[in-house]
Nucleic acid binder design. Structure first.
Length: 418
DNA sequence: TCTGGGGTCCTAGGACCC
DNA sequence: TCTGGGGTCCTAGGACCC
């Protein structure tokens, strides 16, 4: 048996944990640049705020219902996520951290009575120690645990255990096909066109048809719905195969210098991420584009891929090449909205293909990077940076409704009056 | 005025080999 | 009339997830 523990309305719950006066009131959190709604409290959902809508389109709803709006605060959400996961690690023999707000637990060996007691214990412990409410779904496969979690969210006690056949079949009868984990929009319309509307319909579809149109992925989902576990728990998070840092700009950027500072900053962030997982990158890509929503603006989008002479994780080198890449695609006369850097062909840093004529002092770079990481980790982000990143961030994100970093910045710790 | 950011896996088809 | 059989590797594109 597997359990899926999912934090309820996670970002909204993080904000509320430090601002309990918002409990029972509508709260939404916006994407970077304060663009779209990416998280909603239940009350906000009831006001009719849809997931992903641009906030300017729902100004009236926000005003009328007095909805509290936040910019996203990933420093806060990331830290709270870690606290939640640490608690779960202590409660389960095996755990897979699936996303910022979800974890699968292995419940091998529990019997039914243990299970319901255990689910209650998880819920209470996490909520008591972090202030974050969670739902617990339990089932014989990860896919069924996901489904159970969806049901748990609608139950008063926030728990759902699917562990006998008739109960599972009954659930699948009443489950829309697009509520199955792994069935997205495209597959849903394909399935609907073929008269497959419920999870039960999907279960009854012939294997070879599923194989043909939904590939082995679809077949695995089908097996999982039958109760045959195909998706194992991923106990260690594998190193990432690609790493990307990209941002939309708070204001449109025209000049090369500002764009170059932004790209250098993204390259530097990528380098940090790649060093954090002890990798080095062989391929670097830089992309830029204008704002496609501005139909009256001249549009331009381009990317440039550079195959680095040697795989590296040095910010200095990666910034150097990102600047070369940007120079080759930058065209003046456009108003740029977004840029980004992507590193691929990542390998273990210990496996280095040396080159005969390498004029970079790699040992020196490594020492510098180590020192920079050490300083920035203890003193704060970007305390030490490469000059090319610039000082002014004229391209910076719009974040007008940012909450304090309650748990990661000493200056933001809340005062409690006793 | 205004529209996010970061990932993974699978397949078909082309290019190549003997 | 009539033209084999068996592989690998790479990439673009399509699907999905949070």
């Amino acid at each position: 048996m597997f359990a899926l523990v999912d934090c309820n309305n996670f970002y909204a719950s993080c904000e509320r944990a430090f601002n309990p006066s918002l409990n029972n009131l509508p709260v939404v959190i916006l994407s970077n640049n304060d663009g779209c709604v990416i998280a909603r409290s239940n009350e906000a959902k009831l006001c009719g705020v849809k997931m992903g809508v641009p906030v300017f389109q729902i100004k009236d709803i926000v005003a009328k219902n007095n909805i509290t709006v936040f910019s996203s605060n990933y420093a806060l959400y990331g830290d709270i996520s870690q606290r939640v996961m640490n608690i779960l690690v202590g409660l389960a023999p095996e755990i897979e951290i699936y996303s910022i707000d979800e974890a699968f637990l292995n419940l091998k060996g529990f019997d039914f009575f243990d299970l319901s007691e255990y689910a209650v214990k998880i819920k209470h412990t996490v909520t008591k120690n972090t202030g974050i409410p969670v739902s617990v779904g339990i089932g014989p496969t990860k896919t069924l645990a996901k489904i159970a979690n969806g049901i748990a969210k609608k139950q008063k006690n926030g728990i759902c255990i699917l562990n006998n056949e008739s109960e599972i079949l009954n659930t699948l009868e009443n489950l829309k096909v697009n509520d199955i984990w792994g069935i997205g929009g495209r597959y849903t319309s394909l399935l609907n066109k073929n008269n497959i509307f419920t999870a039960m319909d999907f279960l009854n579809a012939p294997d070879n048809w599923v194989r043909k149109y939904l590939s082995v992925v679809g077949l695995r989902i089908k097996e999982e719905l039958k109760g045959n576990s195909c998706l194992a728990l991923q106990l260690v998070r594998p190193a990432k195969q690609s790493i990307c840092t990209s941002r939309s700009f708070g204001t449109l950027v025209k000049d090369f210098e500002t764009l170059n500072e932004a790209v250098a900053t993204f390259a530097s962030r990528c380098a940090e991420k790649v060093r954090k997982q002890n990798s080095i990158a062989k391929i670097l890509m830089v992309f830029v584009h204008t704002n496609a929503f501005k139909i009256n603006d001249k549009q331009y989008a381009a990317n440039r891929i550079i195959n680095l002479p040697m795989a590296t994780s040095s910010s200095i080198e990666l910034i150097h090449y990102s600047s070369i890449a940007l120079k080759s695609i930058y065209k003046s006369g456009y108003r740029y909205k977004k840029a980004g850097v992507i590193l691929t062909e990542l390998t273990d840093e210990n496996i280095i293909q040396t080159k005969m004529f390498d004029n970079v002092d790699r040992e020196k770079h490594q020492k510098i990077m180590k020192a920079i990481d050490l300083l920035n980790n203890s003193l704060g982000k970007e305390k030490v940076k490469i000059a090319a990143q610039g000082n002014y961030k004229r391209w910076k994100l719009k974040q007008e409704k940012l909450s304090p970093n309650y748990t990661t910045n000493f200056e933001n710790i809340i005062n409690v009056n006793v």
